[in-house]
Amino acid sequence: MKLKKSFFIALLLSVIALGYWEYHLRSQGYIAVIDDNKALWAETYKKVQKASSEDVVLLGSSRVHFDIQVDTWEKKAGIKPIMLASDGTTPTPVFKDIVNNTDYNGLVVIGIAPGLFFTPNSRDVFFWNRAAVRLEHYYEGTYAQYLNHKVSIPLENSFAFLNGNEEDWNDDVDLKTMLEQIRIGERAQSPIPPFYNFAKVDLDRNVTMFEKTETDTAFANTIIKVWHFLGKGAPPAIKEPVIELYNELIPRFEARGGRVVFLRNPSTGGTRFGENMAIPRKDFYDEFLKQTNSKGYHFEDYEQLNQFDCPEESHLYTPDARIFTAELVKIMMNDGLLINTKTN
């Protein structure tokens, strides 16, 4: 066996094949992106343990994740917020964990995406479970998983072909996902429309929406189809158990000096129409704030926050998100909820 020769042939062919694959993917528009996975989230959540009362923690689902730009926030408020909003989750289990298991006593901004927020407090609920899985990883992740995450970051940052995502987007280029896209016949077709990745995340978990979401209407429409599909299949919203839980958590958090504000981010088009029909503001958002005696910012109440069009009806295009963030910080400063720690 001339294994040395075979090894060098294998090495050469591997470099050529992977180099070609990388070149091919980049020519298709793929870029190197970090996976917004549970390991990255857990790394970010660690910051809460060390956070001071001047820090700001952002919780919520994808709307807070997309619409709040942490660099803009830092520029305006002097402190970079800890971005813990997660796509497709309700923020409630994370807030519950902050209250129960940390000493954090700063400001928490909690995004209310009605369809995800007003759901039962149970792990059986998809949105709650997704958040719980991330919390679980924070508590139970092994040192080996931590090391894997650390080693994978520079690689993910360098190669477009390593863009396999925990979210399993339909346009991921890992072998399993690529094979899943092949269809033969009509047998057992998934009713869910294809869901393509439309943003990238950085190490601070700050999201940047891909430009094509704004410029390519056909692409944006594929995402809109997913929102409409999910909206149609969603169970009826409920508020009582959510109010009850927050009524238990907020006083305890405030008793140790913490502050909580709620935020309703913009949505547009059919998605907003559907939300208004199924989860009317008056019955849910307003009632929630009233019963929990909480402060909230609804985009409809502020002209400067109500000037945007979401390319896919649910999230702001990043340049708009920067303006939204700056305006929100300004409003919160005027209300005395934030002070610029650098200028003060």
Binding site: M1, K2, L3, K5, S6, F7, F8, I9, A10, L11, L12, L13, S14, A17, L18, W21, Q145, N148, F161, L162, G164, E166, V173, D174, L175, K176
Partner: peptide, 27 residues
């Protein structure tokens, strides 16, 4: 492997390695 031509073994080895990289196992 001993009976396989050197170049072919190299090709098979490369194919396996490239597919491992493309599969991007999630551990």
């Amino acid at each position: 492997a001993g009976k396989t031509p050197t170049w072919l073994l190299g090709v098979v080895w490369a194919a396996m390695f490239v597919l491992i990289c493309i599969a991007q196992g999630t551990g």
